[in-house]
Design a protein around this nucleic acid. Structure first.
Length: 294
DNA sequence: CACGCGTGGGA
DNA sequence: TTCCCAAGCGT
């Protein structure tokens, strides 16, 4: 795509008027605040993130503050947001930012990409939303909006970072501020209007220019999406094991963990993988604890 | 590139 | 109830 599919001002005007007042969008939120929000929002809904984000920014207002906390404190504060490895990586990133970047979250995409837990999406989201940089921000919502509005498809096919970035890059105006606003607007549109199940096309600011509308809103025709199981998987067992540790005051005996899952083989495998991932540690007397608290 | 990685809410 | 999913990342 080499041409802009619609007038970006239709979308940015809509965003200026309709954007939800999310806490990390408030005036004065730092790059650190944005990085924390983007990390928590990876695969976790806004409603569950908001209260935890508030707690984190009050408790750890700068990267160096988080870096000074123990891993156990960080994992408890993460609570049940899910995918707790994100919390450890954010902790590591905070230490690197404090040590190597003057305690200020970098604004450059490549520098951000070098930090643990920051990938193609998060690096560009921080550059655009925190620092007003021109960066193609591609998440699942933006991919869906582009698939529909630009390509006329019912939904996005399997992700391809290179192609997806190029698609969105072609839509962005050349100047930083306008591009950053459009990036935010594209995401918001996908989240609140151009949704997976029941898109509210009657409320869409770009419906008149939408290729999917013009094509008669055809159903998604790509390969079927993979649906990941949860019940009975190692992910569920790991979650149960970690939940015991989050709720404990300190190290717990193996017997306390044996109680959460019947299948001993799977239980032990998960315990091992948690140790390998650094989400658990074993004490000298054989008990288990969150890392760094004994 | 496909897969594994938590959790809880809504259809 | 069961299924689908919600601002991805690292391997």
């Amino acid at each position: 795509m080499t041409t802009i599919a619609w007038d970006p001002t239709e979308l940015t005007d809509w965003f200026a008027a309709e954007a939800r007042p999310l806490p990390w969008r408030a005036p004065g939120v730092t790059g650190w605040g944005v990085l924390v929000s983007e990390t928590m929002l990876q695969q976790t809904p806004v409603n569950r993130v908001a209260p935890i984000w508030q707690e984190w920014l009050e408790r750890w207002p700068r990267p160096s503050d988080l870096a000074a906390a123990t891993q156990a404190e960080v994992l408890r504060a993460w609570g049940k947001l899910g995918y707790p490895r994100r919390a450890l990586r954010l902790h590591q990133a905070a230490a690197a930012i404090a040590a190597d970047h003057g305690d200020v979250v970098p604004s450059d995409v490549d520098t951000l990409l070098a930090l643990p837990g920051i990938g193609a999406y998060t690096a560009r989201a921080v550059a655009a939303f925190a620092y007003g940089r021109r960066a193609p921000v591609v998440d699942t919502n933006v991919r869906r909006v582009v698939a529909r509005a630009v390509h006329g498809a019912g939904d996005a096919g399997p992700p391809s970072t290179k192609r997806d970035l190029a698609d969105v890059d072609a839509l962005l105006p050349s100047d930083d501020a306008s591009a950053a606003r459009l990036s935010a607007a594209l995401m918001e549109l996908g989240q609140v209007v151009c949704t997976v199940r029941s898109p509210a096309c009657e409320r869409c600011p770009i419906a008149a220019d939408c290729a999917w509308q013009h094509a008669g809103r055809p159903a998604y025709a790509g390969p079927p999406k993979k649906v990941q199981k949860f019940a009975g998987t190692d992910r569920q067992v790991r979650g149960k094991l970690l939940d015991v540790l989050r709720g404990a005051e300190g190290p717990v005996p193996r017997a306390a963990l044996d109680a959460v899952w019947q299948d001993a083989g799977q239980r032990d495998r998960c315990l091992d993988s948690l140790l390998v991932d650094g989400l658990l540690e074993q004490t000298d007397d054989g008990r288990f604890a969150l890392p760094g608290e004994h």
